[in-house]
Write a protein that binds this DNA or RNA. Structure first.
Lengths: 392, 392
DNA sequence: GTTTGTTAGTAAAGCTTACGAACAAACTCT
DNA sequence: AGAGTTTGTTCGTAAGCTTTACTAACAAAC
C-alpha cells in the first residue's frame, strides 16, 4: 500500500468542500428533520421562482426523486401552501402532468417602512411582493413611545384590512437593529433598545421580522429588482445609509451596524461640519436636505451640476475602498431620482472606476433602483417570505 | 378559529430563522448523509477545540445523544481519525469515562507560501498547525512554467520528508485565485489562469487547496491567533493585500478579488505614480520597497516618523470606509514588524477612529499578527483541516 | 384501430440516521 | 454494604430518502 493509496481511500470518506470550495464549519447538530425542512423550502423556492410546475419538473430541478417530491408536496398541500392548478396544456407523450403552484392566495404579508422623515408607510403585499393596500401615518415629530404607538396603530389599520391570514409582518427601520429585531439605536425616532419585534409579535400574534431599512432595500432589489447576489445598496434620504448583500445574505456586522457609511469621513480636504461632530462625513455632501439646500442657493445650471458632481465624486471616493475590498460588481442607489440619477450617478461611477482596479471588476455597475419608494416595504416582505417559507 | 390561530399553527410547521436571525436560502437538496457528515465534523470540531473528551462529554456539548456520538466515534475510529486515550483521571461518581482525542499522529499537512518576493516557502505541519519541518526554494526571478516547476519541486522535497500519510496540501498564492484553485492572475509570478490545484492534485494524488495568500493569513489568524470571526487582515509586503473574514468564512468577491485594496486610490490630494498607471494607490505609500526607500532617504528620526505616520494615515483613510461599511471590530496587520508596529500602526488606528463612527465599533482593534512569517503556511494548513475534516 | 414507447405519479420495501428505553459496569458517598 | 451516579452499549423505533415496480394516460407510427 503506497502512501498515496492511504490518502485517497481515507479522503473519500471525508466531507468534501462544497460548491463554493470551502467546507461548512459545523456549529450545531443537524437532524434529519432539518434536512426535511430544507428540502421543503427547496420545493417552495422552485415554485416561487419558476412558477407553475409539475411534481416531476420539481424532481428534475432539485435532484430529489419524484417520490420524495410527491411526499413533500402532499405535506405542503395539507398546509395549504401549495395547490394543484390543473393539467399541463401543451400536448406531449406520456401521462399529462398535474401542475402545481404556490397557493398565492393563501396568505398576505404586511410590510412596514419606518425610514421616512415625515411619515411611516406600510402596505399589504402578496406572495409576489405586489402591493395590495397602502397606509401612511404622519410622524409629526413623534419619538420614543409615541413613535412606537404610531407603528402599532399603522399596522393595526392594515391588519383590519387584510382579506387572508397574515404570513408575517416585516419592518424596515432606520438605525441599528440587532438580530432579534430590537432597534438598538435610531436617533431620529428617539429609540434606544426598542424591542420592536417582540412588541409587535406579542401585540399581533404573528411572526414579525425587523431589519435595518437599507438592508431591507437591498433584499428587495435582489428579489424583485435585477440585483445580483453580491451588491451594495446606498440609500440617500435624510441621512445616508447602506445595505450589503453578500451571497444573497444581508451583512450585519460585529455590532449590527454594517452599511452605516453616512458618517465615514470622505477625502483629505476637510469638509462641512456634521451633526455627529466630525467634519467631512459623507452625509454632509450627500444627504437630501444638504443637497437641496446647496442646490437652492445655486444660480446657474453649471453651478447646479458642479454641486451634484461634487456629491457624486464624494460618494465614489467613499465607496472605492469598499468596492475594492469586497470586489463588488454592483452598486445600487435608492433615493430621490431627480437628485441622484444623472450627473451625480455619472460622477460616482467615474470616480469609482478611476480609483479602483478595473481588472477586478471590469463590469462594475452603478444604477438607480427600479423599485422606487416602495423598496423598503417590499424588502420587509422579502424578510417574511424568506424567514417563514425559506423563499426569496 | 381566529385569524391569529391560523397563523400560529401554520407558522409552527415552517422553517424558523436560524441562530443568526435569517433563514437559510435552500440551494441544493440535503440528504440524511449530508446531515451525518455535518455531525461527523461536529464531533471532530469538538475534539479539535476542547481537546480530550469522553463520548458523554461530546454528547452534552453537541446536543446529540450518547448513542449517536458512540456511533459517529466508532466510524471515526475505524478511519483512524479518533483514538481512545485511556480513562478519565479525576475521580468522580459513576463509571469512569473513556477519553477520546483526535489522532493527532494520524496525518501531516503540507502548507505552502508563494507570497514571498525572493523565495517560496513550505512546511510540514501537524493537526495543531505546528510546524514540523521547513523548506525553502529561491525564486530567482522564475515566472510562468518555471515558477510552477519550483512549486512542484518544493512540495516534492517535503513530501519525501513526511513521516505520516498526508491529509492534504494547502497553498497560499499571491494574486487572484478562483474557488477551484486556479490562479487567475499573479503578475509577479507570470501566472494567468494557472490551474495550480488541479496540477498538484494530479501530481501528488492528495487533496490540494489553493487560496489567496492574504485570505490564508486571515484564516490562520482566526484559528491560531486571537482573531475574532469577523476581521480584516492587511498583508504588507512587496505589495499590499487584504483578506476578509466574515463570520469565520473568507470572502471571495464577485471576481475572486476581494481584499485587493493595494490599488485603491487613497485621499484626494494626488500621490506618487503607481506601477498600475494610477496615482496615489495605497501601495505607493505602504508597500515595503517604497517605505524602505523613503526611510533610507530620511535623515532624522523626525523625518522617519513623519514618513511612517503618513503611511499609517493613508492606510487608515483607505480602511475607514471598509471598517464602517462592514462594521468591522478588528483589523490585523501582517508584515515587517519594524516598519508596521509602532508609529505606523498608531497613526492608522487614530485615523480610523477619527474617520468612523465610534458608536458602531467602540472596541475597534488594530494590531500586529502574532503569527509572524509563518502565517500564510499555517493558514494554508487551516484550509486543509477545514476542507478535509470540517475543523478549524 | 392497434402497438410501441414515454411520462407522471404512487406503492412497497429497504437503507440510513438519530432517538428513547433499558441495562450492565464501574465508580463515589454514606 | 447499599444507594446513587455516570458511562457506554444494545435493542427497538421513527423519520426521511432511495430503489424498484407498478398503473394510468398519453403520442406516434404502423
Amino acid at each position: 500500500m503506497t502512501t498515496s493509496d492511504v490518502q485517497r481511500s481515507t479522503a473519500t470518506g471525508l466531507p468534501r468542500p462544497n460548491a463554493r470550495g470551502r467546507a461548512l464549519r459545523p456549529t450545531t447538530k443537524v437532524l434529519p428533520e432539518h434536512a426535511r425542512g430544507h428540502n421543503r423550502s427547496l420545493v417552495l423556492q422552485t415554485l416561487y421562482r419558476a412558477g407553475s410546475q409539475s411534481r416531476a419538473d420539481i424532481a428534475r430541478e432539485t435532484g430529489l426523486t419524484r417520490v420524495t417530491i410527491s411526499d413533500l408536496v402532499a405535506e405542503l398541500m395539507l398546509e395549504d401552501l401549495v395547490i394543484e392548478v390543473g393539467q399541463r396544456e401543451d400536448a406531449r407523450p406520456g401521462k399529462p402532468a398535474t401542475m402545481l403552484d404556490l397557493n398565492r392566495e393563501a396568505f398576505q404579508i404586511i410590510g412596514v417602512d419606518l425610514s421616512g422623515y415625515s411619515e411611516f408607510r406600510a402596505a399589504i403585499l402578496d406572495f409576489d411582493g405586489q402591493i395590495i393596500e397602502r397606509a401612511q401615518l404622519p410622524l409629526a415629530g413623534s419619538t420614543g413611545a409615541n413613535a412606537t404607538a404610531k407603528v402599532v396603530s399603522l399596522v393595526e389599520s392594515l391588519v383590519a384590512r387584510t382579506t387572508l391570514p397574515i404570513l408575517g409582518i416585516g419592518v424596515g427601520s432606520p438605525g441599528v437593529v440587532d438580530l432579534g429585531g430590537t432597534v438598538l439605536s435610531a436617533p431620529n425616532l428617539g429609540w434606544a433598545g426598542e424591542p420592536l419585534q417582540q412588541l409587535l409579535e406579542n401585540r399581533f400574534g404573528v411572526p414579525v421580522l425587523v431589519i435595518n431599512d437599507a438592508n431591507a432595500a437591498a433584499l428587495a432589489e435582489h428579489s424583485f429588482g435585477d440585483a445580483d447576489s453580491d451588491m451594495m445598496l446606498i440609500k440617500v434620504g435624510h441621512g445616508v445609509g447602506g445595505g450589503l448583500l453578500l451571497d444573497g445574505t444581508p451583512l450585519f456586522g460585529s455590532r449590527f451596524a454594517a452599511g452605516e457609511i453616512g458618517h465615514v469621513v470622505v477625502g483629505t480636504d476637510g469638509g462641512a461640519e456634521c451633526a455627529c461632530g466630525k467634519r467631512g462625513c459623507l452625509e454632509t455632501w450627500l444627504a437630501v436636505p444638504r443637497l437641496e439646500a446647496a442646490l437652492a442657493a445655486s444660480t446657474s445650471m453649471d453651478e447646479r451640476n458642479t454641486i451634484l458632481t461634487e456629491a457624486g465624486q464624494r460618494l465614489g471616493i467613499a465607496l472605492a475602498p469598499v468596492v475594492g475590498a469586497l470586489n463588488l460588481a454592483e452598486v445600487v442607489l435608492s433615493g430621490p431620482t431627480e437628485l441622484l440619477d444623472g450627473v451625480l450617478a455619472t460622477a460616482t461611477i467615474e470616480t469609482l472606476r478611476a480609483r479602483t482596479m478595473a481588472e477586478f471588476h471590469g463590469d462594475l455597475i452603478l444604477r438607480m433602483t427600479t423599485l422606487g419608494e416602495d423598496i423598503v416595504m417590499r424588502g420587509a416582505a422579502v424578510m417574511v417570505l424568506s424567514g417563514q417559507l425559506g423563499v426569496s
